[in-house]
């Protein structure tokens, strides 16, 4: 089992992975509140990045409306909790189920009518935007005024996993486990029948079909797994931030945010989305400090908005990756550090 899941890693790679997991586990022991919250956000982005990557990187389906699935999870769980007092596990089941159903419906329509490539991507945006406007007008979901989860000073001190009310450390551990779980799931899927079929369909659907692959079904599977994962991220988001606004949750920017880490890390790689998140978010933080420092020293004026500069930086970073390293930073780093084994070395154990 271990060899099947981690067969692509060298000894150094395995050691690095183990060290990484260990560091994540003990981090709350010495990290400041700030570091912990930044790492929580990184892990959240790494988690949704893996969900998105599963569709594009494994199965070759580009979604730029992934905020839709994340939003369905977020809104369903928040609604059930805030209005009916139901715990997030119920929200996860309902929201996850709903997101998977919506994903299945969209892809069933799209693939039945042979809509592929950029047209499929546009269809995902169209559904996300349509949903945003609908939620804007849905009174029971708070509409444009937003949906808020009840939170008390006392509950911020606790560790109530069942209701996802508690200290920052609790949220950190929840998203860490989700992120590592997603990584394990992706590893397992990629080495199973679905993984082989997905990559075949991604590389050449016609040839895959001639080899007995039901491309419709396997594309559906990819969308469903991915949308379920995104909805799970949405549940976490809702309980972590405690407020939801349609224009923030279902926006195109949110969908694009979900794609940044995997693109930078490497689309189609297993660890790329995680790596990308750990590269991008700290860079963004450094950028924020730099601007604030420059403003403090009065080198640049206050009118320069941190958000604008950050966005500008993301834009330039993604453009640079596409132009210079289209396969992403992770494969490049792996080669440099010798973390991944060449296919011919995977044959005889370690």
């Amino acid at each position: 089992m271990i060899d099947r899941l981690f067969g692509d890693l060298t000894r150094a790679g395995l050691a690095a992975l183990a060290a990484f997991v260990l560091l994540l586990l003990v981090l709350p022991g010495f990290a400041t509140g700030y570091i912990l919250s930044v790492t929580t956000i990184i892990l959240y982005l790494a988690f949704v990045g893996q969900a998105w990557n599963l569709m594009l990187g494994f199965a070759g389906l580009l979604s730029i409306g992934h905020a839709l699935f994340m939003g369905i999870g977020a809104y369903a769980s928040a609604y059930l909790f805030a209005r009916h007092g139901l715990p997030p596990i119920v929200g996860l089941i309902v929201g996850g189920g709903l997101a998977v159903a919506v994903g299945a419906a969209i892809s069933a329509l799209a693939f039945r009518f042979a809509i592929g490539g950029v047209y499929f991507a546009l269809l995902t945006i169209a559904f996300a935007e349509f949903t945003r406007i609908m939620v804007d007008h849905a009174r029971f979901l708070g509409g444009t005024e937003g949906l808020f989860l009840p939170v008390s000073a006392e509950s911020r001190q606790g560790f109530d996993l069942f209701h996802l009310r508690g200290r920052p450390e609790m949220f950190y551990y929840v998203i860490m486990l989700l992120c590592l779980g997603a990584h394990a799931l992706c590893r397992w899927l990629l080495t199973s029948r679905a993984g082989y079929y997905w990559r075949a369909v991604r590389d050449n659907p016609q040839a895959a079909e001639a080899l007995g692959v039901n491309i419709f079904r396997y594309r559906m599977y990819a969308v469903m797994v991915s949308s379920g994962m995104a909805a799970t991220a949405g549940v976490f988001y809702a309980f972590f931030y405690n407020n939801l606004f349609p224009e923030q949750i279902f926006s195109v920017e949110r969908s694009i945010e979900m794609t940044l880490a995997p693109i930078v890390g490497g689309v189609g790689t297993l660890f790329g989305p995680i790596f990308g998140a750990f590269v991008l978010t700290p860079l963004g933080e450094v950028l924020t400090w730099a601007i604030e420092w420059l403003q403090h020293e009065e080198i640049i004026g206050k009118q320069v908005k941190v958000d604008g500069v950050k966005l500008l930086f993301w834009g330039i970073a993604v453009a640079a990756i596409v132009l210079l390293q289209p396969r992403g930073l992770w494969p490049w780093a792996c080669k440099r550090l010798g973390l991944i084994r060449a296919p011919e070395d995977r044959e005889e154990g370690r």
């Binding site: 991604r202 590389d203 050449n204 016609q206 040839a207 189609g268 296919p343």
Partner: peptide
């Protein structure tokens, strides 16, 4: 296929 159709990113 007459025009070969390998999966290029697979071994």
């Amino acid at each position: 296929f007459q025009i070969v159709m390998p999966f290029p990113d697979l071994t």
